[in-house]
Amino acid sequence: MIGVLILLPPSEGKAAHGAGPAVDPAALAFPQLAKTRKALLTELARVSKGRAATALTVLGLSPNQAGELEANRDLTTAPTLAAADRYTGVLYDNLDLPGLRADDPEAYARAEARILTFSGLWGVVRPGDAIPAYRLSGGVTLPKAGPVAKVWRQALTPALAPAVASGLVVDLRSSTYAAMWRVPADAADRAVTVRVLHERLVDGVPKRSVVSHFNKAAKGRLARALLVGDVAATTPKELAEALQDLGFRTETTAPAKPGTAWTIDVVVDSVV
């Protein structure tokens, strides 16, 4: 059976090293996105080479993040690293793609086929795609290109249509990256948006909230479980059942209106 397609956000944190050749935008997943990638890469490098204070403002960075500009200035020549190794942080630490590659090659092969990481600079990449370190949030508005999310909505809508023509889509993206591309209405009954809710007792009453650390950690563990377990659910209800079998506490909500995705809430406590 076909496994689920897993949509991930990138991470702000990225490994700084690399030994691969300079990035080739057309060699990444979905080569039809190369023109858009090159345009954004060129403008990002130009902005980052300009006045530092202006570049930091454009990119939504603080003065103590000025070092991030250095990577952007050398994008066309910088050494590359597989996306599986480039992206770091809580979600990717819990997903641990390098660990899968070393210890469970079959699960890593599934990751290559089933994971799409959304990126403000590259649009989407697969784990094996070789990319340099960079900093460009999907929420940024560049002086020439305009809102990055809008640029990618226009490019990704036709490019991703074949990828979501069949099978279940599990969306683990943050709102910033969900704005770059939305599941088409005709595929919405096969799409699930996963939310992670942190539950704790307040004066003996359960209270739920979204807490960044727990959200990212649980999503990383969930994506890993789907790959290791070779989950091949074909409906949102089957996915919820599979996640429960894998030890996750879930609550499923049907779409509020036609053409929108299902929602699965994963409820976690302080132990993740």
Rank of each mutant, 00 (worst) to 15 (best):
L168M: 10
T176S: 04
L156Y: 01
T157I: 11
V170T: 01
A155T: 10
Q154W: 10
L156H: 02
V169C: 10
W181A: 08
W181M: 06
D171A: 09
L160I: 09
V164Y: 11
G167E: 13
A163S: 12
A185G: 11
A185F: 09
Q154I: 12
A165T: 10
R153G: 11
R173T: 00
S175G: 14
A155V: 07
P158D: 08
R182L: 14
A161G: 11
A185D: 13
V169M: 10
S174E: 06
V169I: 15
S175M: 12
R173E: 04
D186G: 08
S166G: 15
S166L: 15
V169S: 13
R182M: 14
R153N: 12
P184R: 13
A159Y: 06
L172R: 02
P162V: 13
L172H: 00
L156N: 03
W181L: 04
A163I: 14
L172Y: 00
L168G: 02
S174T: 04
A179S: 10
L168W: 06
P184T: 14
A161L: 09
A165P: 00
L156C: 04
W181V: 05
S166C: 15
A185L: 02
A163T: 07
G167R: 11
D171C: 13
Y177K: 00
L172V: 01
D171L: 05
S166W: 15
A159T: 02
W181R: 08
L172M: 04
V170A: 05
V183D: 03
P184V: 13
D171S: 03
